[in-house]
Design a protein around this nucleic acid. Structure first.
Length: 105
DNA sequence: CCCATGACTAATT
DNA sequence: AAATTAGCCATGG
């Protein structure tokens, strides 16, 4: 524990199905780091594809999907498929009604 | 300890 | 409004 990565995983695991959060929000929820959005991305990158962490629910602040895996897990395309499967509507790579779908803890 | 990297963000131009 | 620049943070070599 105590590792930045684990803190990120724990928080992301709380995101309900059909909802999304942003890298920046996660960073902020962790507290003082504030703008550690990048580090959050790194943490998720290190995370394994089979982890209980729904990394696909973490998107960019502007509503775009952002990345997913390294092109190995199917890339952003896979991310979109997973989100749509949860009821999140996406159009042109941008989440429709992003503000509403955004999860707040 | 310094440098480089990356699933980011906000501010400028 | 789209494209660029600069800032920020954890991790690994």
């Amino acid at each position: 524990m105590g590792t930045f990565d684990e803190a990120v995983y724990r928080l992301v695991r709380r995101v309900p199905r059909g909802r999304v959060t942003t890298y920046g929000d996660v960073a902020r929820a962790l507290g003082r780091r504030g703008r550690a959005a990048r580090a959050v991305g790194q943490a998720l990158l290190r995370n394994s594809a089979g982890s209980p962490v729904p990394c696909h629910r973490v998107v960019r602040a502007d509503g775009t999907l952002g990345g997913y895996g390294g092109g190995f897990s199917g890339g952003p395309r896979r991310k979109q498929a997973l989100l749509e499967g949860e009821g999140v509507r996406i159009r042109d790579g941008v989440i429709v009604g992003f503000g509403a779908a955004r999860w707040r803890g």
